[in-house]
Design a protein around this nucleic acid. Structure first.
Ligand SMILES: [Zn+2]
Ligand SMILES: [Zn+2]
Length: 641
DNA sequence: CGCAACGTTAGT
DNA sequence: ACTAACGTTGCG
């Protein structure tokens, strides 16, 4: 076999009991860069190898029926069902994005590791991915098994579609607590985030970079094929083009499997109730996960950008081929690179007969974080990333994690929460999978939240301190740079009106960094003692966490969290205010570290009497309105998106 | 553009 | 050397 097994090369997939991680090579590593033929200016990528993580890569056998299999001798192409999503994109000479002076992060306090942020397969892609993004996988014609059209022929279901993280479309891990041991510290955590009621038009605090280009529109995250289980309800409609895709909504009764998870192996939160919101949140968060250009995912000198590719016709199987997106790509979205975005869009023929839902462009121009990806500009949605060979399926570009190539970016989910809500309501009963997937595919757009929202946003605060003007509150928002956002709010500054009656009784479920427990029962990762101690030192005996005690909601407004990633662009998370509740705000060590002036911060907080130490504290944003749709927050006040 | 062909690279 | 299949080229 020409291609090495998945385990051989990066991205390396690591699975723990509770989590799956993907470790990619850090582009900084010169060795990874090898592969260029010569030093030419163009530096070409060395031949890429299959990632071994995506759904197709999990397929070990050729279907024997696809176009490529049938004409294998002549075409010399891998089975369409086995074609790595990362390889679907056309290799392209990549010019390394200019890393920002510091690693690309504007204020990042957090340092990145050599290990690039782990991309959670969309499971997800990501997920969600990503919002993350999936590449659509062709559904193998059913050769032997009529039962599951989604599985490649001849392969056992379980085998063909491994539930590995990679296989899930969209799952994005959000909270730091959930990260696996291997996960590197958040890279872009700098936190210049601003939260504003209307985020729609908020502009990044600064940024040399064009907002558009930098905005989190992450390139589509590469996605992995959706596990068969997830595909059950999928219909052709699922393959609509991004702009045609409606907001995804998992079917309540459908096994969403990977779609919802953050962790493939972990059972998804029991109820479906949160799926949607989670999915949305996750997808958006995924954007935040983009690795900085520096990140390995970003092609280094040697790396190449790949464009998504689509194999429309190739995938079309006589038997009624269907595509399904892989979510893996989502995780490789450009920005966070971890999400691969990749979604291939189904051939036009698949679109026919399906409703077209257009998502009006919402405010955020989709742009890919990476310059290379930016080619499409706003139109990037339609970037043709696909190699010439597979034009139809153009997906957003993703990089290949291997060989120094850019990893796929997580697709950003485009639909805003609101839209999703609506969609959810409308379609929840149907196969929501398709729509759900759209999350991952669609480029990031500003939420339509605006409809609901009345006021305008405040804006752009560049520092850690965030204020929501409309609510007259002060908050510190911190993102781990990867998957979570922590918000510290002086609830006192907020009027009671905003409190949510619904969850008022609920105590914070947020716990201190060292003991974070995910509300979803996901694994929690303890904070290393060392960190804690350091935090203590910082605080000098002050409470480790300061939290707000009341639950706060933002009815009637949209909450926008924006993070300036510096060169990487800006990440913006927008949520309908009515769906956001802040139950507790915590200032933990990480947050504290993010503060340019911890002393002052502590003092500030203390002065406001916000401080309250509660071992169990924890939360952040929670979706209030509908439990089913509520956005779950997880430990450490991380918001999972 | 979409695609078939095939040279070439790379793992066994 | 053999096999797999990536990447490029060129045709329609
Ligand atoms: Zn095949
Ligand atoms: Zn792959």
């Amino acid at each position: 076999m020409g291609e090495p097994g998945p385990g051989v090369s990066f991205p390396l997939k690591v699975q723990t009991d509770n989590e799956d991680f993907v470790i990619e090579m850090n582009d900084s590593n010169p060795s990874d860069s090898v592969g260029y033929d010569g030093m030419g200016d163009k530096m070409r990528c060395k031949r890429r190898k299959r990632c071994g993580q995506c759904g197709p890569c999990q397929v070990k056998e050729n279907c024997g029926k696809c176009h490529f299999c049938v004409r294998k001798d002549v075409l010399k192409q891998t089975c369409i069902y086995r074609k790595c999503v990362y390889l679907r994109s056309k290799p392209k000479p990549y010019s390394r994005p200019q890393p920002s002076p510091q690693g690309s992060q504007s204020g990042g306090t957090l340092s990145s590791n050599s290990v690039s942020p782990i991309m959670r397969p969309p499971m997800g892609t990501a997920r969600l991915h990503t919002p993350f993004a999936d590449h659509m996988l062709p559904i193998p014609p059913d050769t032997k098994q009529e039962t599951n059209p989604f599985l490649p022929p001849n392969l056992p279901h379980h085998q063909s579609m491994p539930m590995t993280a990679a296989a899930y479309p969209g799952s994005i891990e959000v909270s730091a607590a959930n990260r696996g041991p291997f996960q590197p510290p958040p890279v872009n955590m700098s936190m210049h985030m601003s939260i504003s009621p209307h985020c729609m038009m908020s502009s990044p605090p600064q940024g040399p970079q064009d907002q558009n280009s930098t905005h989190v529109n992450s390139p589509p995250a590469p996605t992995l094929p959706v596990p068969p289980s997830v595909m059950n309800d999928r219909t052709v409609g699922d393959f609509r083009q991004p702009d045609q895709i409606t907001i995804p909504h998992p079917h309540p009764s459908t096994n969403l499997g990977g779609l919802t998870h953050h962790h493939p192996h972990i059972p998804h939160p029991s109820s479906h109730s949160h799926l949607e919101s989670q999915a949305v949140m996750e997808s958006r968060m995924s954007r935040m996960n983009f690795p900085p250009p520096m990140d390995s995912r970003v092609p280094s000198d040697s790396s190449c950008m790949y464009h998504p590719y689509s194999m429309a016709s190739h995938f079309h199987q006589p038997g009624g081929p269907t595509y399904f997106p892989s979510s893996t790509d989502m995780f490789r979205s450009q920005l966070f690179s971890s999400m691969p975005p990749g979604y291939s869009y189904p051939p036009s023929r698949f679109h026919e007969g399906f409703s077209n839902m257009h998502f009006p462009p919402l405010g955020m121009p989709p742009t890919s974080p990476f310059p290379q990806c930016a080619q499409g500009g706003m139109g990037s949605l339609n970037n043709q990333a696909f190699p010439q060979q597979y034009p139809h399926l153009n997906q957003q570009s993703h990089g290949c994690p291997k060989n120094g190539c850019c990893p796929p970016v997580s697709p950003s989910i485009e639909s805003d929460a609101k839209v999703m809500q609506e969609g959810y309501k409308k379609r929840s009963r149907r196969s929501s999978v398709s729509s759900f997937r759209s999350l991952f595919w669609e480029p990031w757009k500003s939420p339509s939240i605006t409809d609901d929202v009345s006021s305008t946003v405040s804006s752009d605060f560049e520092c850690d301190i965030i204020s929501i003007d409309d609510l007259q509150m002060n908050a510190y928002i911190r993102s781990d740079g990867c998957n979570s956002i922590e918000i510290e709010i002086d609830d006192r500054s907020v009027s009671e009106d905003f409190q949510s009656p619904i969850r008022s009784s609920r105590k914070s479920f947020m716990s201190p960094p060292g003991k974070q427990v995910d509300s979803n029962n996901r694994n929690a990762s303890p904070t290393p003692p060392s960190q804690i101690s350091s935090y203590e030192n910082l605080t000098k005996g002050k409470p480790k966490e300061l939290k707000a005690k009341r639950r706060l909601t933002f009815e009637g407004t949209a909450v926008c969290l924006k993070q300036d990633l510096g060169d990487e662009g800006t990440i913006q998370l927008e949520l309908p205010g009515h769906k956001v509740t802040i139950e507790n705000a915590v200032l933990d060590e990480k947050l504290a570290k993010s503060s340019s002036n911890l002393e002052e911060l502590l003092e500030f907080i203390s002065s406001r009497k916000v401080a309250e130490v509660d071992a169990n504290a924890g939360t952040l944003l929670e979706n209030e309105k509908d439990t089913d749709k509520s956005i779950k927050t997880t430990s450490a006040s991380k918001v999972h998106i």
